[in-house]
């Protein structure tokens, strides 16, 4: 039983880390209805910038602040150079633009910072501590705390502030929002900046676990089933979806893997996502699309 619980808890903590990645997608989807293919590249760019600054001798806080500024600057440039010329184009066009953007960001990262593998130490031991008789990693506890804090801040920002309400208006009906004076470019700049900072948080946590290297952008593959399950437009959905994916794939690897003599976690999350698509296409917390026909 203890083994089952430890597997479950470790799966849930992995799920929290998937959620951190998924939240970045949700933010941009909420603001523009676009699936941002470049989120993984942003995560890579942010963590690579941070670790490069630290290696050059910058103190932790300075590196963190500078990287956040770089991500905000990047968001402004993306809005000005990529999104603004495509305003009012359909979602597929914007999706293709983010696809191209991902290649540009990864290419820039390699050009500016090289392709070395970097160690990232956040000063938190990745060693187990006993919590209620279960061995749980201190690092997982930290990651869970960081994710919860992030969700709390984002929830306040999006539900209680003027900016958050504007953002929801833009997501609901872009043209109507513009007609009442909401400035779309400003909203996009803010949302992409926040998504960039979320990417930094996710990048630091994933980078500390596996090292900062180019395959870091692949963690977004884990975010896709999380988004399908939780819903593309819900931060709470990203959290619940992440926990579900993390727990089920961890348990599936232990209990189903040996039956099929192979690892199952890669496809198991996607099978789960397909089931959700069939039963609940908008995901657990996603907005149902209602269109006049």
């Amino acid at each position: 039983m203890n083994f089952f619980l430890e597997t479950l808890v470790s799966g849930l903590s992995a799920g929290v880390m998937y959620s951190l990645v998924a939240i970045g997608f949700v933010l941009i989807y909420k603001a523009s209805g676009v699936f941002n293919f470049a989120q993984g590249s942003m995560l890579l760019f942010a963590s690579l910038t941070f670790v490069t600054l630290v290696e050059k001798g910058a103190p932790f806080g300075v590196a963190l602040g500078t990287t956040a500024l770089v991500m905000i600057l990047g968001a402004i440039l993306i809005e000005r150079l990529v999104l603004r010329p495509l305003v009012n184009r359909d979602a597929l066009t914007l999706f293709m633009a983010t696809l191209g953007l991902s290649f540009v960001i990864e290419g820039l990262a390699q050009l500016l910072m090289g392709s070395d593998v970097h160690m990232l130490d956040l000063g938190i031991d990745d060693l187990p501590v006993s919590v209620g008789g279960l061995m749980i990693s201190q690092f997982d506890l930290f990651a869970s705390g960081a994710a919860l804090a992030l969700v709390a801040v984002l929830s306040i920002v999006f539900n209680k502030t003027r900016m958050g309400i504007s953002l929801r208006a833009v997501a609901d009906d872009t043209l109507a929002a513009q007609s009442i004076g909401i400035r779309l470019p400003a909203i996009w700049r803010i949302v992409w900046s926040v998504a960039g900072i979320v990417a930094l948080a996710a990048g630091l946590i994933w980078g500390a676990r596996q090292g900062v290297q180019y395959s870091l952008s692949l963690v977004t593959l884990k975010a896709l089933p999380v988004l399908i399950i939780g819903g593309f437009s819900s931060i709470a959905g990203a959290i619940v979806g992440g926990l579900l994916v993390g727990a089920t794939e961890s348990l599936a690897d232990i209990y189903i893997g040996p039956l099929v003599q192979g690892s199952v976690s890669t496809w198991f999350a996607y099978i789960l996502a397909v089931v959700f698509l069939l039963v609940r296409p908008a995901g657990l917390f996603g907005d149902r699309a209602i269109e006049r026909v």
């Binding site: 083994f3 597997t7 470790s10 903590s13 994933w206 090292g211 395959s215 232990i254």
Partner: peptide
């Protein structure tokens, strides 16, 4: 371990439960 191997908690718990003395790690990349 499924590609790319960024999450291995379940596998290492299996190793611990099996009481392995040695691990031959055939990895790649991350």
């Amino acid at each position: 371990v499924p590609h790319p191997g960024e999450q291995q908690q379940a596998q290492w718990q299996q190793i611990r439960q099996a009481g392995a003395d040695w691990v031959f790690l055939r990895g790649w990349g991350v």
